[in-house]
């Protein structure tokens, strides 16, 4: 398919007029993809009274915002959102369309891909543009959709060589959010929308949300504990160290399952992906699912009594020993230096 359109579309997810971080992460990545393809970066925004959100996308390089603003689109609902996107994709046939791999994105993208017969790859952790030889055909400028598979044991590169639109959902936190020094002068294209009966078939009866009080993604220092700490009592060491360093507390899935720490602090494939300045992993063996959520950290210190623990393979500094001895030692030494 040589006539594939070079435009890159990003679905902008917003709640009550607040755009999701992942949408800006995708615009930042999408900008680079569009530059490589010499195509246009387009933000697709649905909601009610969200013009301010539209303007924010210019700071991340959107050259055009396709805006569908209507009171009945205030909250995300699969039926109207998918119909609108299906019609837009069928009309414009963007070469690439990206969604965050959030609950919303993972609900919406497959429905759109099904109707438009687009290729869709879930939960990508990297995207690249490359020429590809597949079987005996040469393809120019395909989107390489890179994702973990088989429980994170392999990394697969997926391509959709013969479709008009290559779609992907991308995990939150893995692409860097990179605002431009000055926003581009983009245009807002408003698209008319009239709800039909099928759009309104599913109704929201109630909605409850608690804003996340902990923002691990924004923390410059994270101290994370694992199952290796053994007890909830020992896990207090993690809180002590985090308090002294001014960092946030996190945990591995095993630590969360054991009740040492609350689920919103979980780092890893089923938790949050973080890339702080400093990540200290204590008593975390470093299963692939955990490493996937932290290995991009600027500096990693691993503390573990098992010298063979896989966490050391991603660490910059490794300390083999008992956390109950090392952490107090670290805290005391640090306090002395601050004096």
């Amino acid at each position: 398919m040589n006539q594939r359109n070079n435009d890159v579309w990003v679905f902008i997810e917003q709640r009550s007029g607040v755009p999701a971080d992942v949408s800006f992460e995708l615009l930042s990545k999408g900008r680079k993809l569009a530059e490589t393809l010499q195509g246009k970066l387009v933000a697709v925004l649905l909601g009610s009274q969200v013009k301010d959100v539209a303007k924010k996308t210019f700071a991340f390089g959107a050259q055009e915002v396709m805006l569908v603003d209507h009171p009945s689109l205030e909250h995300f609902r699969t039926m109207p959102y998918s119909r609108i996107l299906i019609e837009l994709v069928e009309k414009h046939k963007p070469g690439i369309m990206l969604f965050g791999a959030t609950i919303t994105g993972r609900d919406l993208a497959p429905r759109v891909a099904s109707a438009t017969k687009s290729g869709l790859t879930a939960d990508c952790t990297d995207l690249q543009i490359s020429d590809v030889k597949y079987i005996k055909d040469d393809y120019k400028n395909l989107l390489l959709q890179i994702r973990p598979a088989f429980g994170g044991n392999i990394i697969a590169t997926i391509i959709s060589p013969d479709v008009a639109t290559q779609m992907a959902t991308v995990r939150e936190g893995v692409m860097r959010m990179e605002p431009l020094p000055s926003p581009v002068k983009g245009k807002v294209t408003e698209i008319n929308y009239t709800p039909n009966d099928f759009d309104e078939i599913v109704q929201i009866i109630e909605q409850h949300r608690q804003d996340r009080k902990i923002n691990l993604k924004a923390a410059p220092i994270i101290v994370a504990g694992g199952y290796g700490l053994g007890t909830k009592e020992n896990f207090k060491l993690i809180y002590d160290l985090a308090a002294v360093l001014g960092g946030e507390v996190a945990g591995s899935r095993a630590a969360v399952d054991a009740g040492f720490v609350t689920p919103e602090r979980q780092v890893g494939q089923t938790g949050v992906t973080v890339r702080p300045k400093l990540y200290i992993a204590v008593g975390i063996s470093g299963a692939i699912q955990h490493r996937a959520g932290m290995q991009e950290s600027n500096k990693i210190i691993a503390i573990n009594n098992d010298p063979e623990a896989p966490i050391f393979s991603v660490a910059h500094y490794g300390i083999v020993g008992d956390a109950a001895v090392i952490i107090p030692m670290f805290i005391n030494t640090f306090k002395q230096k601050l004096r």
Binding site: S118, V132, L144, G152, I154, I155, I158, S160, D162
Partner: peptide
């Protein structure tokens, strides 16, 4: 429409 172009096992870089 989607094809597996490449698979790599996750190798721990020492």
């Amino acid at each position: 429409p989607t094809k597996v172009h490449k698979v790599e096992s996750v190798v721990l870089s020492s």
